[in-house]
């Protein structure tokens, strides 16, 4: 029967939910790494004005962040196999997350790069440093720490968006909760616990990010 809260059942399903949550966390971690890397590439390409590439990247970023992650995940999971690229649920999900959030992180990096004083660029030019050294030794070491809190906020957002990958078959915590409730005909405990698990991780994480924001003095 449904209705009410069954503590015994709640305790019984915790290990299964925890396994699902690990998949959610893994997807978040891999998606974040991809978004951090790809976003940086997008930002540097746009700043360096690489031939027509910077216009293409700009247009892609504007388009991709105005459209739903869910549809993008379907494209990657269902359309790519038609051109010979077949990805599993996790790989497709991570690629979808990484690509979507790279469009946000690239803007974050851009702001960070713009905040580096012009004098730094000029000094690097005066020392006739090679382009790669200008970026790796002068600009990025000053730009990246400043934007870490903003990047952290996107990691938290991504974590909360992982469940929509259940649409492409990723067995993350909400999928597990749905399976459990289908088996037991009790939706109350699994879905409520899933929500509590999200809160238990994302609330402390957001407190940490806020503290970091205050320390770096940047928004």
């Amino acid at each position: 029967m449904t209705g009410g809260w069954d503590w015994a059942y709640a305790v019984e399903i915790l290990p299964a939910l925890w396994r699902g949550l690990q998949v959610t966390l893994l997807a978040t971690l891999l998606g974040s790494l991809l978004a951090f890397g790809l976003g940086l590439v997008f930002a540097v390409v746009q700043r360096n004005r690489v031939a027509v590439l910077h216009r293409v990247v700009w247009a892609f970023v504007q388009f991709w962040r105005s459209t739903p992650l869910l549809v993008q995940a379907y494209v990657i999971y269902q359309v790519l196999p038609d051109v010979g690229i077949t990805l599993g649920s996790l790989a497709a999900g991570v690629l979808a997350l990484g690509l979507h959030y790279a469009c946000y992180t690239s803007e974050v990096y851009r702001a960070g790069i713009e905040a580096v004083p012009p004098g730094q660029w000029e000094a690097a030019a005066a020392l006739s440093l090679p382009r790669s050294r200008v970026w790796l030794a002068v600009v990025l070491p000053q730009a990246v720490p400043r934007v870490l809190p903003a990047l952290g906020n996107y990691v938290i957002s991504m974590f909360k968006e992982v469940p929509l990958l259940l649409a492409i078959g990723l067995v993350e915590v909400v999928t597990v909760a749905r399976q459990l409730s289908a088996e037991s005909f009790r939706p109350v405990e699994p879905l409520t616990l899933a929500g509590i698990l999200f809160l238990l991780i994302s609330y402390p994480a957001s407190v940490v990010v806020r503290r970091l924001e205050r320390r770096t003095g940047a928004r």
């Binding site: 909360k160 929509l164 259940l166 909400v174 879905l191 929500g195 994302s202």
Partner: peptide, 16 residues
């Protein structure tokens, strides 16, 4: 509402 995932909130209202 910021801490719990939107999908979870949707399923919760829809199923729970």
């Amino acid at each position: 509402f910021r801490g719990t995932s939107e999908v979870v909130q949707l399923f919760w209202i829809f199923f729970v």
